[in-house]
Design a protein around this nucleic acid. Structure first.
Lengths: 368, 368
DNA sequence: TTGTATGCGTTATCAC
DNA sequence: GTGATAACGCATACAA
């Protein structure tokens, strides 16, 4: 059904010259014969819409559909005073870890009708702060931060806290900033990793610890030590290396490689490496290959995260899986529930939600 | 400098009860003693702003800064009639290929002042169409599609074409739909891949071809055949396998593995595999390992794309690199230039921009 | 049950 | 050089 022009009624000639951008609620009103108010009420299904005659509603919907009417986002936002969008700042969109969390967020988000505004901080703290400010000024109604690497400045989110914006950080414990977090249970994961290696019969085990600045490092290592204590395993200092504090995301690989080379030189008796994460595990595997050892025959390696690559490498990397999709979905739900309950001013005490990790056994570990 | 309240002038009492959301241009006007018009002119640096007294400008800027004034996005959009945003639909945000292109886009985009609205289609054509419609209705001023896998429906972008929205597709040739594309030169890449393997002395070479539905497959294979012709190499049909048409992005790995297993069974004399892409190359490597062959000692493998994982695997994967960052940046520039020249109605003939691939030699290939 | 009038914050037009 | 005014498209209090 096609009309030539858009109905020749009063007032139309005035704007007939300016190329009509898009069909507004006024067009629907004129075309359907009702007032803009009635149209708005009917279309939004609000207030006294249940009192509208069914026939009226039908006509209005029909007309709107026929004209292809879509409400103007900016007009709605301006009028309602709510931006209808939530901000997402991801530390590194090229990091598969972040990417899977993003997808988890997206899965829930799309049901909610909110528009995600996602910004990629490129591993730069400056850019991160800048983007947070930008999003706050855009009046996003909530904020999700997807963190991976180093990221310590507690003040970077202060304007968010000040405005009591519903916010959550995935991958970092931000309690101290007064912001809720969604985290994997690093302690449990560290425990699982060593237990797996131990149960395979390994006793000479090298360890690649996380950078001191990274919040994950401490509990992960604590979990590992807890298992060692329970099992009566003696962790020798010379078998332990720590990844340096650097913000380059690829550094995990090269640092893992170098530290493993050192380890192998001083302690060639090692038959397993417990790496801080998958990236350093891949570095370790590279180092082992370079020093003529094969994985898993000569040495087992276990990682942490379960990035997609871990399943695709040969041998597949045994690792401790973080439930990234679930973490993302949960993060959104956290923000969303605060959005819903916005009226009842929840004190929104910053809480940390721990997700359970899971051992994924692949080809890179084998019994001794 | 802090004021209690926001200046007690006419009309203020009226709204003094409603909690003031944010500082508007009226606040700046009152506070600085000028009219909203003047403030707007000064702040935007438009029209007769050069005629404003320097002192006036200074005062206005100072006041705006002091009050922390930020213009309301929605009001600007509503008034100017331009959304100030461009839409980006990515086929699979969990695909590192897409992700790097996204970053390339972002690098240019952030300089431009446009807001990116990115949508993740999750490898679903339905969702893709839905998102395109959504973005069009949101009145984005331009559109970038980041495609990776199968994606053939030409009509999915028809509303974009109809509205003559500046648009570009990265990773797919969409000339037939009347949309410009940014692509790697697949023909050249296919040529480079085989030349490398050939120059290493391999003559019994297995091939993993791309799915028939995927536009990249044909030119890539054509390039390979061109080199074979020039070198007088006879491509034996039994050495050639084709990946199936499926849309699951991980299928490349498993299909690559299975086809390579078949290949090895029927043609054990093979000493090199030219894979369609990195994912199928990793599948091939897995298959080789499973059948007791080591890479590169017993068999060389070359991929295509250079996803980040290729550098991290052990051995590193030799591959044909697509300049993904550059492709992303170029894509944005294409859209942006059409945005700038919007007035002069460029017929915007759909053109295809080919980017040159590059051979990256790593550990997975070795001379025979 | 439906219509009128108003304002959200900004900018463009025009008058002074 | 600067300011009054209207309008962008929509939603709502209030009137009818």
């Amino acid at each position: 059904l096609h009309f030539g022009g858009w109905c020749y009624l009063v007032g139309d000639l005035k704007r007939a010259d300016k190329t009509k951008q898009s069909v507004t609620i006024l067009d629907v009103a004129r075309e359907s014969g009702f007032s803009p108010t009635t149209v708005s009420i009917a279309l939004n299904g609000v207030s006294p819409s249940e009192n509208l005659r069914d026939e009226t509603k039908r006509q209005i919907f029909e007309t709107a559909r026929r004209l292809g009417y879509r409400p103007s986002e900016s007009a709605q936002v301006l009028r309602r005073g709510r931006s209808n969008s939530i901000g997402i700042v991801v530390f590194d969109i090229a990091d598969p870890f972040c990417t899977l969390i993003l997808r988890g967020i997206d899965l829930e988000l799309k049901k909610s009708g909110y528009l995600p505004i996602v910004m990629d901080a490129h591993n730069s703290l400056d850019r991160f702060k800048q983007y947070v400010e930008m999003l706050v000024h855009r009046r996003v109604e909530g904020l999700i931060v997807v963190a991976n690497w180093l990221f310590i400045k507690l003040d970077a989110l202060k304007s968010v806290v000040q405005r009591k914006l519903p916010a959550v950080v995935v991958g970092r414990d931000m309690r101290q900033s007064g912001i809720s977090s969604v985290l994997v249970d690093n302690e449990a994961g560290g425990y699982l990793a060593l237990r797996h290696i131990y149960e395979l019969g390994h006793r000479n085990i090298g360890f690649l610890l996380g950078p001191t600045q990274l919040g994950d490092s401490i509990p992960r290592w604590a979990g590992t030590r807890r298992f060692a204590n329970e099992a009566g395993l003696n962790l020798k200092k010379a078998h332990i290396k720590r990844l340096p504090d650097v913000s380059d995301p690829l550094s995990g690989f090269s640092a893992g490689r170098e530290l493993t080379l050192e380890l192998l030189q001083s302690r060639p008796e090692i038959t397993a490496v417990v790496a801080f994460d998958d990236l350093s595990a891949f570095g370790a595997i590279r180092a082992l290959a370079e020093s003529g050892r094969s994985v898993p025959h000569d040495c087992s390696v276990i990682g942490f995260d379960d990035v997609p690559m871990s399943a695709l490498a040969t041998p597949g990397l045994t690792t401790i899986r973080q439930p990234m999709l679930e973490m993302g979905s949960f993060a959104f739900e956290t923000v969303f529930s605060r959005l819903r309950g916005a009226s009842s001013l929840q004190t929104a005490d910053a809480r940390v939600n721990l997700m359970q990790p899971e051992l994924v056994v692949r080809g890179s570990t084998q019994s001794r």
